[in-house]
């Protein structure tokens, strides 16, 4: 099976000299959720941002294979091509909805923005698709025209999800999607993500500091420390039989 994303030797060094990540390699297979776990400073966010095409890597290649576009080397694209990918094929759900949503626009408008960026120009059909997405993420349709500020944190994340899924991207990137949410809300959101993964077969990269989140969603996981991948394997194996010293430390401290 051709991976949806194939990353080799990804290295991100910031202009300040700070190293984000070094020599990171991994594949994401169609329909799978790959977890990336690490503490802050581990490099997981740099990896995510590089794949989201939000920052240019210092070194490395990434081959992206989508049903619509075929195979592309995504770090070698020009600004227009990059924007095309970001708007239609690789969608990012931010940790903080305030960074991602426009709080001056209705929730529906936030989702519509993704469609309009993809050249949808029929208001009725846009409304229909927004409603469909709202239903998909279990948001109340009657709130479609409300401002996001009137939504709870969990609902704001659902709006983000709806927008991310609007153009049926081949790859969904989730950055601590449940960070800052109450435990019960977290659980609901994680359930939703599981369902979406199963129903839509969208490949996902899930970044989290929380092993519980990764356990629930990801079948395979990378463990990162100080910019490098320290261990990778089946999630249940990482959690129950960690091989590397750092992984053992992480697992023992997190799961007690």
């Amino acid at each position: 099976m051709t991976p949806v994303l194939s990353v080799r030797d990804l290295t991100v060094t910031y202009p300040s000299g700070v190293v984000g990540c070094v020599d990171v390699s991994f594949d994401i297979l169609p329909g799978e959720i790959l977890g990336v776990v690490g503490e802050s400073g581990s490099g997981k966010t740099s990896v995510l941002n590089a794949i989201a095409l939000a920052l240019p890597p210092t070194r490395g290649d990434a081959r992206f294979d989508s049903p619509r576009l075929g195979s592309q080397a995504i770090f070698a694209l020009n600004a227009q091509e990059t924007r095309w990918l970001r708007q239609r094929e690789i969608a990012l759900v931010h940790q903080n909805p305030h960074r991602a949503l426009n709080f001056d626009l209705s929730a529906g408008a936030n989702v519509a923005e993704a469609l309009l960026a993809a050249d949808w120009r029929h208001y009725g059909r846009i409304r229909q698709r927004v409603a469909e997405l709202f239903r998909r993420v279990e948001l109340d349709l009657t709130r479609m025209d409300d401002l996001p500020g009137r939504f709870s944190g969990g609902m704001q994340q659902r709006v983000q999800l709806a927008r991310a899924l609007a153009n049926s991207p081949a790859l969904l990137l989730l950055d601590e999607p449940t960070g800052g949410l109450d435990v019960s809300i977290q659980a609901r959101l994680l359930d939703l993500i599981r369902e979406l993964s199963r129903d839509l077969r969208t490949a996902m990269l899930l970044v989290s500091h929380d092993l519980e989140v990764v356990r629930l969603l990801a079948r395979r996981t990378l463990v990162m420390q100080q910019g490098r991948v320290v261990e990778s394997g089946l999630t249940d194996q990482i959690l129950e039989d960690p091989q590397e010293p750092y992984t053992q430390l992480l697992v023992h401290s997190m799961l007690t």
Binding site: G233, L234, Q237, D241, Q243
Partner: peptide
């Protein structure tokens, strides 16, 4: 059993 299931390496 876990080794056969690969939960253990």
């Amino acid at each position: 059993l876990k080794c056969l299931y690969r939960t253990y390496r």
